[in-house]
Simulated scan of single mutants.
Amino acid sequence: MNTDKHKKQIEDRIAELTTQMQKISDDLDQPLPAHLEDQAIDLEDDEVLERLGQANQQEVRLLNAALKRIADGSYGVCAKCGDDISDARLAAVPYAMICRNCAAAA
């Protein structure tokens, strides 16, 4: 399997997520408004941003693990059955560790 295309896709996604996480961090660092009603809305928004930031961090961890699998030659091989993971699946889920059949069985 030629992993160059997947590696580039993963690196681009990590860069995109890193940019998003920086914007989230900048938004969370903003002071609260003076009015209590506006503060309540901002606090709710901050909770959503924090959850989004956590999801982004998790995806970055998964993508970095995929880069390690590329480096060690195990990328694209199902961790359960040992079959190849399809290019279509890897394009959709670049950090996939199991093939479609094993994912469907789980």
Rank of each mutant, 00 (worst) to 15 (best):
M1S: 11
M1I: 02
N2F: 02
T3H: 09
T3L: 08
H6D: 05
H6E: 06
K8D: 12
K8Y: 14
K8C: 08
Q9Y: 07
Q9M: 15
Q9N: 13
E11L: 12
D12M: 14
D12T: 11
R13H: 15
A15G: 11
E16I: 03
E16Y: 15
E16H: 14
T18D: 15
T19E: 15
Q20Y: 10
Q20W: 09
M21S: 03
Q22F: 06
Q22A: 14
D27V: 00
D27R: 13
D27E: 15
D29T: 01
Q30F: 08
Q30D: 09
Q30E: 13
L32M: 06
L32C: 02
A34M: 07
A34P: 00
H35R: 15
D38S: 11
Q39C: 03
Q39K: 15
D42F: 07
D42H: 07
D42Q: 13
E44A: 09
D45I: 05
D45K: 08
D46Q: 11
D46K: 14
E50Q: 09
R51N: 01
R51F: 01
G53R: 12
A55R: 13
A55Y: 07
Q58C: 00
V60N: 10
R61A: 15
R61Y: 15
A65C: 02
L67R: 07
K68D: 13
K68S: 10
K68Y: 05
K68C: 02
R69T: 09
I70G: 07
S74L: 03
S74Y: 00
V77C: 09
C78V: 08
C81S: 12
G82A: 02
G82E: 05
D83Y: 00
D84Q: 10
D84Y: 00
D84R: 09
I85W: 00
R89M: 12
L90W: 03
L90V: 10
A92K: 04
A92E: 06
A92C: 07
V93P: 14
V93I: 15
P94Y: 12
A96E: 01
A96Y: 01
M97F: 00
I98W: 01
I98D: 06
I98V: 13
I98K: 06
R100H: 10
C102Q: 05
A103E: 15
A104D: 15
A106D: 13
